[in-house]
Design a protein around this nucleic acid. Structure first.
Lengths: 224, 224
DNA sequence: GTCTATATAGGGATAGAC
DNA sequence: GTCTATCCCTATATAGAC
C-alpha cells in the first residue's frame, strides 16, 4: 500500500468505482436513461477515462450482469439439493430477493438484454431454470421429510409458481408503489406471499409453523 | 365513401395503420430499438407524415398504452363482481392473458414507462390494482358459493399471487423460451399454473373439476 | 491511467412545398 | 395529408497530449 502523501486518491480500483456507481445509477434511473457522460461525471472522471475502462456501453451492462450471475449462482444450491426445513428455505429465498433488488435494473428489460446479447440471454435463461430448480428443491425437501404433501405434478407446478413469484414480485410491487428506494417492506411482503403459496400443501403441524412465520413477516410491514 | 378511381389508397385511417404497425414492431423488437424512421418506412409513409399524426414518439407509446388500458379495463369486471364458477374465471383469465400478449412490449419496461410519464404510471398502477381486485373477485365468488375454502387472509394473499402470476407469467416464460412469436403454448401453461394455484383451496368436488380442467390445458402443450 | 478535444452517427423533430 | 429536405441535439466513441 504505497502511501502517496495525500495527493492521489484510491484510483487503484477505478474500475470498481465505475461499476458501483453505474449500478446505482441504473437502478435509480433505468439503464436507457443513463448516459456514459453522466456516469463519468458521477464517478468524477472524464468520459475518455471511462472509455478506457469500458470501451462500449454494453460492456458496462455485461459486467454488471456477470456480477449478478456470479452472485445469484453462488446463492442457488445445486440441482440435487433438498431443503431441510422451512426456515432454511425462507432464509434462502430472502437473500435471493435481496440480490434481485440489488440488481433490479436488469429486471426492467430482461428481453432487451437478451436480444442485444445472445450469450447473455442464454446465461439468463440458465439462471431462471436454476431458480425453478431451487424452488423444486425446497418442495421436494419438504415433501421427502413429510412436512409437505403433494403429488409430483403439484410440486412441479408449485416450483414454477414459486419461481415466478420470487423473480417478479419486486417488479410487481414497484408498479403498485413506484418511487420506493428501500426494499425492506417490499421484500417482507414478498416472503410472506411465498410462504402463503406453500402453506396449503403443508401438513397440519408444519402448516401452523409456516403460518406463524408468515404473520411474523407480515407485521414487519405497517400495512398493505 | 368517395371512390377516387383507384388513385388514392385507404389513406383515411393512416393513424390506425401507424398504430397497428408500431404495435407490431414494438412487440417484435422492443420499443427502444424501433426508430420513428423505421416505423414510417414500414407503414410506407414519410417520416414527416408520421410526425404529422404523432408529434412526439412518446405519443405513440401513449396512444398504445391508452389502447391497452381501454382493452383491459373493458375485460376486468367492477370491484364488486364475484365469479360464479371456475369456468367463468378461467375464461376471464384466458382473455386477459391474450390482451397482455397483444401489448407485451409494454411489459418489457413498465417502470420505464412510468418514470417517463407520471400520469401513465398512475394509470398502470390502477390497472394492477384492478387486476388484484379481479382475482379477489374470483376467490371470493368461489368462496361464497362454497366451492373454495380459505380464510380471508388466505384469500387476500391468493389474490395477489394470482395477479402476479397472470401479469408476469408471459414475461417469465419469454426469458426461458426466447424468440417465441406465437403465444398459444405459453398462455396454455399460464392458465394451467393459475389453476394449480387455486386448486389446493378448492373443496373436494370442485377440486376434481379444476384438476380436470388443468390437465386439459396441459395437454394442449407438447411438453414442458 | 487520466485528461481535453473532437469525430461521427442516428434519431427526433421541424419547415415549407405540393 | 403527404412529401422532401434539413436542422439540432445527444450519446457513443476516438485521438492524442500529459
Amino acid at each position: 500500500m504505497p502511501a502517496d502523501p495525500a495527493t492521489r486518491r484510491p484510483a487503484r480500483n477505478t474500475r470498481r468505482r465505475i461499476l458501483d456507481t453505474t449500478l446505482a445509477l441504473y437502478n435509480a434511473l433505468g439503464e436507457p436513461n443513463v448516459s456514459t457522460t453522466l456516469i463519468a461525471a458521477e464517478v468524477g472522471i472524464s468520459a475518455g477515462n471511462l472509455h478506457y475502462h469500458f470501451r462500449k456501453k454494453d460492456q458496462l451492462i455485461g459486467a454488471l450482469l456477470e456480477q449478478f450471475i456470479v452472485d445469484i449462482e453462488q446463492l442457488m444450491p445445486p440441482d440435487s439439493w433438498r431443503a431441510k426445513d422451512v426456515e432454511e428455505s425462507w432464509f434462502l429465498l430472502h437473500i435471493i430477493f435481496e440480490t434481485i433488488w440489488k440488481y433490479r435494473f436488469l429486471f426492467r428489460d430482461l428481453s432487451g438484454i437478451m436480444s442485444r446479447d445472445r450469450r447473455a440471454g442464454h446465461r439468463l435463461s440458465g439462471v431462471f431454470n436454476r431458480a425453478v430448480a431451487t424452488c423444486r428443491g425446497i418442495c421436494l425437501g419438504l415433501a421427502e421429510t413429510d412436512q409437505l404433501e403433494a403429488t409430483s405434478a403439484e410440486i412441479e407446478a408449485l416450483a414454477h409458481n414459486l419461481a415466478v413469484l420470487t423473480l417478479y414480485w419486486l417488479s410487481f410491487d414497484t408498479v403498485r408503489h413506484p418511487r420506493r428506494d428501500e426494499a425492506g417492506e417490499s421484500i417482507a411482503q414478498g416472503v410472506y406471499q411465498v410462504l402463503m403459496l406453500v402453506a396449503p400443501f403443508m401438513r397440519p403441524v408444519g402448516r401452523a409453523n409456516i403460518e406463524y412465520l408468515a404473520t411474523q413477516y407480515l407485521t414487519k410491514q405497517p400495512g398493505r
